[in-house]
Design a protein around this nucleic acid. Structure first.
Lengths: 137, 137
DNA sequence: GCCAATTTGTGCGTATGTATT
DNA sequence: GAATACATACGCACAAATTGG
């Protein structure tokens, strides 16, 4: 994977694309560490900010999670809990605010479900570890 | 709203918090432009990168949308289309890849629904303009 | 059409702090 | 303590898009 500084596509997006391809192909497996910022800087001859932007892009997609002092790791697909809902239940989804992220203990790049029950209550669920299934009752 | 450089909370998060409060209170209404990067730099005495990080944070939350050459604007709440689903339908949600974003024409900070029908087909819907409702048929 | 001003986008460099190993 | 790795924050320059005169 090589960066072309003359391409129309910005360097950080090319870089992100390369790492994304490694993740999607399975060359970088879930739980595995991706190359560090310094690795990317040295191997591709870009500035650190460029490498950081590429990493931030993948984090916002939920593909990786970053831990200070350790590195960025391919997101481990959560074993999804199936939440059963009955007729009249309404589902929305959006990105959480930082407060909501803290409250639910979820990392960047993970949306939340807003589940509204027929009675009017509402609950928020992290969308990476829940799927909603419509059942009779 | 003032930035305290000695706070434990990084300047860019303080800045984002200030703007977020303006949006949530309605002082900055949907469709309205938020202060430009230069505005934030001058009024709060921070570096441009700090202002940009604050803005990027709000964009990732889906609160604003940015247009090059124009500025960042408070996201206009989409009139949500209600999609009716029957028993056996399964709903997941996640952030889209850039390719999926392009394909669906959606901005940053907007998750997508993955709707799996009982027959096995699957469709992707932008989560900011759709809500899923479980009905009989 | 043109030019200037404004605003965001990309990219580089540097420094320091914090967390982990 | 040392080495590694990410986080924050400043500076600078130029490119690209839009707007207004």
């Amino acid at each position: 994977m090589t960066i072309d500084p003359y391409s129309d596509i910005p360097a950080y997006k090319q870089l992100a694309g390369g790492v994304r391809a490694l993740i999607e192909s399975g060359d970088l497996a879930p739980g595995q560490r991706i190359p560090s910022e310094s690795d990317l800087v040295q191997r591709h001859g870009v500035a650190r900010e460029t490498a950081r932007r590429a990493i931030a892009l993948l984090r916002a997609e939920g593909l990786i999670q970053t831990i200070q002092g350790q590195g960025s790791f391919v997101t481990d697909p959560q074993e999804a809990v199936t939440v059963r809902c009955r007729k009249g239940t309404e589902i929305a989804a959006r990105m959480p605010s930082p407060d909501e992220r803290r409250a639910l203990g979820i990392p960047e790049g993970v949306p939340i479900f807003i589940v509204r029950y027929p009675e009017g209550q509402e609950s928020k669920l992290r969308a990476d570890s829940n799927v909603i299934l419509f059942t009779e009752e």
